[in-house]
Design a protein around this nucleic acid. Structure first.
Lengths: 352, 352
DNA sequence: CTGAAAGCGCTTACAG
DNA sequence: CTGAAAGCGCTTACAG
């Protein structure tokens, strides 16, 4: 920063006032083409870079972004992690008068999502981070935002056809493929592998399909001898997950060596296996939620695949900050690192 | 930031000038005990928090930190990664007049380290990041720094007895243990496993010892049937690593199912196995350097263990920034996440 | 279309 | 021991 050129110097060189330079720099018009050109030439020649510190201090502008994500609950604590990352970023950027406004919806209830979008539009923010569980409603909503010139960032998943500023999410197919690779390492040849997908009725199952596709594609493409069998179980919302039984699918079918759970609910299988004292089945699941952690620790779950939920949140905020405050270009599509967690390394995973 | 209390308001409330408040806030003395107490009471009651943006702008103070790390080379590209992280942080903090001064030493040459420490002390920085390869020299150096009140941060490893501000590094023992767990998954029972440690003569081998200890401890503690065999190979600096041969240890001893390389040089083994067309040996190593990447891709290396070298660098810079500029407390000991990399997920690992 | 002035919140000499 | 003034680099009305 030392020795850097300032607006005042540009003004002197161009024979105008600082105010005029500022007008040119911010393209607020009201400047003759002639002086504009003169100033821009100097700006480019001397490679002027604005001092964001001074700019932030002088402009009393404050930025408020809206966060629209599922509420975390006891039965689904996953969403606490993105939230943590978002709050951390908010905290770090508070100097810049940059703050967030949180709206949590129930991801099994479309109406709650709608309600929150209305609340946000009542008081339009400068930017938006949204986890889009309901396709159609999200589509409507972000179109409204676009009309209002509110840049929006997707986390977790995205609507590809919309004009989003940035996306931080997972490579679901690859995650499934990686799971298969790990499974292949840890089960014997000619093994039978179960893929068990337990979803609540209204759940967004896009990621899950892709994970399963990725999983299967590994065993298709290699010269593998394992047999894959799929079980989809959709559970009415009223039903507790603990009520599910697998006697028919797991206990009675012999020769099962491994189970892959392509969503957050590996712990349900782990609990079942523990209760039934079935000890020779390998288990791979997703997401470091508390219940899964416990079974990782016990060795019931062998691997969990994760994609940095806290970092997704953190980076989404930083992307909006870079765009709004620093006027920097931001990367559009960002697939997060695929992490393999075991009993030995999951403890480091909670911090950002 | 909106509605926050300012120095001016405190001054008014205390019936003094802003300058006096500033003196109290920065403990620069020359203030009577009485007014000091009055001001501090207001500061605490109203929970005043300084505006770092304004502070940074007003104080023409600039910060320069010294970076003392090994040079990366073709044969040892590892150190490029911490450097990348450091430069990224430097870039982000440039607004605050925060910059770094780089000194790269040859980690096989103690004299080069000494020379660089002298250079740094010639022009004392405001803070220091150092990767301590030479125990004794580092000890001397950081003692000098302490006398000069220069806070120092260790990355990669640390001298525990020194009074460092912060450390970002690895949990070597656990990394070895995790490697063993993975190895145990992928080799058959009653297998023979080789631990091959190839080091240059003068190399710091502290981490490596701990990794090996961790590795062995897994097989000790479990009811495992595998046999572990150690090979230490110290290579004169003049000798190229490619010159090493393993015929005796690998080729001739039968029944080897897995090889663990507790440092960066798994690629040497991979190259050997490839050349000899030995295809049934599993290989686990460390660090995502270019050569290892190639063999991960080919499937010659099954797993690489990494501990976020770029993040170590990045976080070390941020720690000094927090300490020097924001006057925030920083965490002293920070063990980085242990990452398991495979052919399927290493590609996401290069960015920060 | 342009300039002069005041101000963001804090810090830095300087004068007393 | 304390205050008044100027300034960091940029932005914001306001006047013309």
């Amino acid at each position: 920063m030392k020795g850097k050129i300032t607006i005042k110097e540009i003004a002197t060189l161009a024979g105008v006032s600082a105010g005029t330079v500022d007008r040119v720099l911010h393209k607020r018009g009201e400047v003759s083409q002639e002086t504009m050109d003169k100033i821009m030439k100097i700006v480019h020649d001397l490679e002027y870079e604005p001092n964001v510190i001074a700019s932030s201090l002088a402009s009393k502008k404050s930025y408020s972004i809206a966060i629209l994500i599922p509420a975390f609950t006891k039965s689904n604590p996953y969403w606490f992690q993105p939230l943590e990352g978002i709050m951390k970023a908010e905290d770090e950027l508070a100097h810049f008068d940059f703050s967030a406004n949180y709206q949590f919806y129930d991801f099994t209830d479309e109406e709650s999502f709608k309600d929150k979008t209305a609340l946000i539009l009542d008081n339009p923010p400068d930017g938006l981070i949204v986890a889009p569980f309901f396709r159609q409603e999200t589509q409507h909503f972000v179109e409204e935002c676009e009309k209002l010139n509110i840049p929006f960032v997707f986390i977790d998943s995205r609507l590809k056809t919309t004009n989003y500023l940035s996306y931080f999410g997972q490579d679901s197919f690859n995650g499934g493929y990686l799971s298969a690779k790990l499974m292949n390492y840890i089960v014997p040849e000619h093994a039978k592998i179960l893929v068990v997908s337990i979803a609540k009725t209204l759940e967004n199952t896009n990621h899950i399909k892709q994970r399963i596709d990725g999983f299967k594609s590994f065993f298709d493409s290699d010269e593998n001898t394992q047999k894959i069998e799929l079980i989809h179980q959709t559970v009415p919302d009223a039903m507790k997950l603990q009520d599910i039984h697998f006697d028919q699918s797991i206990n009675l079918s012999n020769n099962i060596s491994g189970i892959f759970v392509p969503n957050t609910r590996a712990f349900i299988i782990a609990e079942y296996l523990e209760r039934k004292q079935i000890n020779n089945i390998r288990l791979i699941g997703y997401d470091l939620i508390r219940q899964n952690m416990a079974y990782l620790e016990k060795g019931r779950i062998d691997f969990l695949i994760c994609q940095k939920p806290h970092l997704q949140g953190y980076k989404a905020v930083v992307a909006l900050f870079n765009h709004l405050v620093l006027k920097k270009k931001v990367n559009k599509d960002n697939l997060m690192q695929l992490d393999i967690l075991t009993k030995e390394n999951y403890k480091y995973y909670t911090e950002i």
